[in-house]
Design a protein around this nucleic acid. Structure first.
Lengths: 137, 137
DNA sequence: ATATCTGCAAATGGTTTGCGGAGGA
DNA sequence: TCCTCCGCAAACCATTTGCAGATAT
């Protein structure tokens, strides 16, 4: 049977923080937010709870090329856009592709249980800042 | 102007190793293969060249949830399957989705330059080993 | 009551980097 | 020639973990 878990102050706070933002924060950002409410919470506790919540299917861990993970409080599958310039992650309001997991399963012979789709490029802000300061060619 | 680069023995060997396998190896695996031909090659050199080749668009770095990266000698976009049990990465012979980057750009307002699609589940071998040793309920 | 969780701090481990010497163009 | 690259080894840094005390249930 599954191991029993406790809803501690720390775990509840971390989940609340993650559910109330859409910036896909890093563990460190969550840690600093959490310290505003529980000043002596430790970074280890943040990581332990993020892993526990992930295993429980309450949140998702995102790892898109950077040296650190970001976390998403929305556990339902959806797609992301990652800015190559600033590294920020945004949700893409696109309907989840239907039938694509079945197609991948048929083509590969694997048992497919989920899929992940990400887009890369430049976000609106970074597009702008690339246009303005015309560097000499 | 772009920085000049040299095709050293080490770089050529690393690219050859990566081009001649489809197992999407780790840096360490590449390092051990390379040592068979250049016994005193260093892991640092492997990493430096992998990064250089990646920047040159010759190879791709894959980071799918594990604590380490895997590398792909095929620089053209294609899709992958990652086994949740053994961690191995396989190519999926599925045509690249057309028009999806444009759709994401339209929906999000971002400048989309590329996308990545991954499937997760259990590979053929791991499906088998999950069926056989019936654990008692 | 007691097994899970916490804060603390040290350990881990994949990856990066500074250095002085080597070698590709 | 000379500038990029190499091997070596130490540094880096996000994440994990051992421990002893705290706490949710």
């Amino acid at each position: 049977m599954a191991k029993a878990t406790r809803m501690t102050r720390q775990r509840r706070l971390i989940l609340e923080i993650l559910r109330s933002t859409d910036i896909h924060p890093t563990a460190d950002w969550i840690y600093h937010q959490a310290r505003k409410h529980i000043p002596d919470i430790s970074l280890g506790t943040v990581y332990r709870n993020l892993n526990q919540l992930k295993q429980a299917g309450e949140i998702m861990e995102l790892n898109y090329g950077s040296t650190f993970s970001r976390y998403d409080g929305n556990p339902c599958n959806h797609y992301h856009f990652v800015c190559d310039a600033c590294g920020r992650v945004f949700d893409v309001e696109m309907p989840v592709l239907s039938g694509i997991e079945e197609e991948a399963a048929r083509l590969s012979g694997m048992k497919v249980t989920r899929h992940r789709l990400e887009f890369y490029g430049y976000c609106r802000e970074c597009q702008k800042s690339r246009e303005e300061p015309k560097t000499q060619g």
